[in-house]
Amino acid sequence: MNFLSNNIYYIGCFGLIFIGLYIVLTKKNLIKVIIGINFIDTGVNLFLITIGYIRGGTAPIFSRPGLNPERMVDPIPQALVLTTIVIGVSVLALALSLAIRLYHHYGTLNLRKIRELKW
């Protein structure tokens, strides 16, 4: 139980990454593969934030006097993840537009069929 309560955030983010990888490896539908990529994205963001956390820490904002700078969580992963999320949504939109284009060209979203037409 102690092990579980110590590592619950790790379990959450790596569970998300593994489910995403499983979807990418096994599913045939193109939009479902993109959903899996989104899961991997969220899991990696959660992992980066988890690395910077300090037990009992406060957010790195000096909004009121009397906050102890010794107990503040790491601001650098937060700044990196902030930009990562915005990049993630734009790249996702690009991938979906490619999927729409493929659907108009082949008439299907099944990856096996698209590959058979190609080879």
């Binding site: 790195p60 904002i61 000096f62 909004s63 503040m72 937060q78 700044a79 902030l82």
Partner: peptide
């Protein structure tokens, strides 16, 4: 800047 994340970004 009071918000440290903003100053890093």
């Amino acid at each position: 800047a009071v918000n440290i994340v903003t100053s890093v970004v």
